[in-house]
Structures are given as structure tokens and as C-alpha cells.
Computed example of a mutant assay.
Amino acid sequence: MSDYRIPLKYRKMENLHIVFWIFKDIGWCLIWKPMGILMIFPTLIISIIIAYRTRQMMAELCHNLAITLWILANSYWMSVEFLGLDATTAYQGVTFKHLALIPFLSGVACLAYYYLYWSRLHPDDLAD
């Protein structure tokens, strides 16, 4: 197993990603709709780029995909709250807010795949 070292330009992007994510959630918390909605895009785009750049390392890829799906679910949830649709029924008792479970559970599936399947076949490739 080799050490995973993050190049400085990637680390700067990851750190900026955290800033955008925090501002998105501040916008949500304070109901500053324009800021919350605007921050979805850089937060989600950077998380996709990070996942893409780590595609050669299964541990990193699975965790970064789970983060991307979490941001997607979180952003969707925020958006339906901003639109006043969070408690509205989408289909047979399932609200629009409940639909955020689709990307949340998809992220859980990525992690379950890694920990329950991949890591068992590749014990030397465990995430630290």
C-alpha cells in the first residue's frame, strides 16, 4: 500500500470546497435563499472534480462519491424547503423532503460497497 499524498493545488481546492459548503449551509440556516442556492454550484462542482481526481483509488473514490451525493441530497433538501415544498406530498405519503433520501442512501451504498465488498477483496487497500 502506498501513501496517498494530496498535491497542494488539490488541497487548496478541497479547502475552498469547505468554504463554499459552509456558506451554502449558512444561507440555508439563515434563509438567505440567493446565497444558499448560489453556493450549491461551486460546492457540488468541486466535489465532483475531487471525486474524479481520486478515481484511481477506490477508498478515496467511494468516500468522495458519498460526499458528492451527500451535498446533492443536502442541496435538494434546502431547495425544497426554500420553495416551501418540503412537506408537500410527492407520491403516496412521500414528501419532497423525503426524496432527499435517494442521494443520501446512494452515498451509504457507495460506502457499503467499499467496506463490505471491495475492502474484503483488497485488504491492503483499506482507507485510513
Results as ranks from 00 to 15, higher is better:
I18P: 01
L44I: 11
L44D: 04
D3N: 11
H122D: 02
F41Y: 14
K97P: 10
H63Q: 11
D124N: 12
H17K: 00
S2W: 13
L69Q: 12
G107D: 02
Y91F: 15
F104D: 03
A109D: 05
H17I: 08
W21E: 14
L65C: 10
F23T: 03
K9Q: 05
M1E: 08
D86I: 00
L105H: 05
H63W: 12
A51N: 07
I46G: 00
S75H: 02
A90E: 13
W28Y: 11
F104I: 07
I37S: 01
S75D: 11
L116W: 03
N64C: 02
C62H: 07
I49N: 00
T54N: 14
Y4G: 04
A100N: 03
I22A: 13
M1F: 13
K9S: 09
Q56D: 15
L69R: 08
R120F: 10
W118F: 15
C110Y: 09
L44E: 06
M39D: 09
A59N: 09
I67M: 09
P34E: 01
W21P: 00
G84N: 01
A51I: 01
M57A: 08
Y4D: 03
I46V: 13
I71N: 10
I26A: 05
R120Y: 10
R5N: 13
R55P: 05
P103M: 03
V94T: 12
E60G: 03
M13I: 14
S79I: 10
A100W: 00
A100T: 05
I22Q: 08
E81I: 08
I37E: 07
D124S: 13
F23K: 06
L121Y: 10
L16P: 00
I31F: 07
G107N: 03
A127T: 02
T43R: 04
L101E: 02
A90T: 07
L8W: 15
E60W: 11
L30G: 01
H17G: 11
L16T: 12
L72Q: 05
I31T: 11
S75L: 10
N74T: 08
Y113M: 06
L69S: 07
A112Y: 08
T68A: 09
L126G: 05
H98Q: 14
H63S: 05
R5V: 15
T88P: 04
I102F: 14
M35K: 04
R53L: 04
F82S: 04
R120T: 04
N64Y: 15
T54D: 14
T43N: 03
Y4E: 06
H122E: 03
M58C: 02
L8M: 07
I40M: 12
H63V: 04
H63K: 01
Y114T: 00
M39Q: 11
